[in-house]
Amino acid sequence: MSQEVSVNPATAVLWDPSHSEHDMITTRTLGFWLYLLSDAMIVSSLFASYLVLDHRINTAGGPGPRDVIHPVTAFWGTVLLFSAILAYGAAMVGLKRGDRRIVLAGLGGALLLGGGFLLVEGRDFAQLALQGMVPERSGYLSAFYALVLYHGAHLVFGLLWIVVMMVQVVHIGLTPHVVYRLLNLKLFWFFQGFIWIYVFSFVYLAGAVHGH
């Protein structure tokens, strides 16, 4: 294969001493986004499992989608969740201006609204558990809880991260490292919203359509 050489070998530049910097923030956010996409593959496997186990035989004579799925409750959770994302958006607007107070207010809002989502979901599941609809009951319920709670686990982790970031914004300030973490958390927070879109659409809405 011929080499597509257009430079004159006698005068070609061999070294590039000035090129020592690379953009740390973009590098970090790209890596974290790739990590989130790998997480999306876990979510896909859980969705695939749910799709396979969402069958009459897999309920083993126990409760099916119609019994465990409350789409209206889930919608109130959705409102809270999207509001939490919007609050984080406010923090991002604050960051754009370099205003720590808006950042903290946005993070605090996301914390409260995200916590609210967890309360709504937790109450729903506590009621189901009291009626004996637990993951151990059947393959269908195992898949249902695994999928929905995997999203819930993201939220718990996200809340912990928000707390850490609030402390860092106060104590460290908006240094490049704090900024890239805020950007990563932004990606993470939006990403769990993506998961929820599919959980809400394909578990809650589709389940209410098909039922048992």
């Binding site: 499992s49 186990l53 083993a60 151990e136 393959g139 195992s142």
Partner: peptide
């Protein structure tokens, strides 16, 4: 945790 994803009984696959 006693779930039934891959068990032969109780709705696993």
């Amino acid at each position: 945790a006693g779930t039934h994803f891959f068990t032969p009984g109780l709705g696993g696959n």
